[in-house]
Design a binder for these strands. Structure first.
Lengths: 152, 152
DNA sequence: CGTAAATAATTGCGCATTCAACTGCTACTG
DNA sequence: CAGTAGCAGTTGAATGCGCAATTATTTACG
């Protein structure tokens, strides 16, 4: 653990930032062009869908998708208005509430996947082969953990 | 070039998104905590600084940092007010203008580096060794190119 | 040439996001 | 248990961003 990143590390960091911005923008553009939900909403819905109960506490969901609490409150407001999720009171903690995936939300997520799947293949999968992905995933995850830990 | 991304590719994509969000947030948090310029402004200033003339056309700069034209107009408005850049008329195209780095802007960038350098080392460099960085940079760059091309 | 299409930058507008403050509830501590 | 510290979620205020329309200039072409 040295103190100074090397030139190649700094350059790769910049490439990482640019690639993220470009690729997410392009995927979002395609989703919207095809009349689907945008990328950030896809993220919310798929996060809920992966849960066994298809619901998640507000705070937990905010952490998962890296959103502020207040930002999530209003995002869920909008999604609830559109019928993609609904709120549900938490039994054992009256302060809390769940965001619950609805059938309509699931349907919208599945529909968007028709555009998302070829897009992610073309813009990501074609460049990150399986063996590279397997090597890379734990690296990204470790980075995430470190950032969370050091942010307290 | 298949049509469907594999499970590991999709998982790695999600880890990539989360890692990006977490790490950039944490770096930004540290920069602000130490009284420095935020990450997006650092990006603008360092992009200008790397230019031989330390200036860039508005559109070109917007493309580099992946910003909308209007977004950049207002970002440069703010930076100009703070004295970090100034605008300069373009000689051979009266429609255009340059964003030019000032001494104050350079100083702010250099000062922020004191926080940025250990942060990027700790949150990025410790996980992406030199040989991995060398392998990864062209991958990110190719992804970027593809996204730009397919977005027209 | 002169007019139409394209381009550079800006502006109006609406929306999304965050920080800080607030409400209601829980849990810890003596 | 009483009181206080802390947590979940929401809201108000401020800010920042992008799309679409606008202005000024350049380029294309008939």
């Amino acid at each position: 653990m040295g103190l100074k990143p090397s030139e190649i590390q700094k350059d790769t960091w910049r490439s990482f930032l640019i690639a993220h911005a470009r690729v997410t923008r392009e995927i979002d553009r395609r989703l919207k062009a095809d009349g689907h939900i945008p990328l950030d909403i896809y993220d919310v819905l798929v996060t809920l869908e992966f849960e066994p109960t298809e619901k998640l506490r507000m705070s937990e969901l905010a952490d998962r998708i890296v959103f502020s609490r207040s930002g999530l409150t209003r995002l869920i407001d909008r999604l609830e208005k559109q019928g993609y999720v609904k709120r549900e009171a938490c039994e054992d903690d009256r302060r809390g509430s769940y965001a619950v995936l609805t059938e309509k939300g699931k349907a919208a997520r599945v529909k968007a996947w028709r555009t998302f799947e070829p897009a992610i293949q073309e813009l990501w999968g074609d460049f990150i082969a399986d063996d590279e992905a397997m090597r890379l995933k734990p690296v990204y995850d470790a980075m995430t953990l470190k950032a969370i830990r050091s942010g307290r």
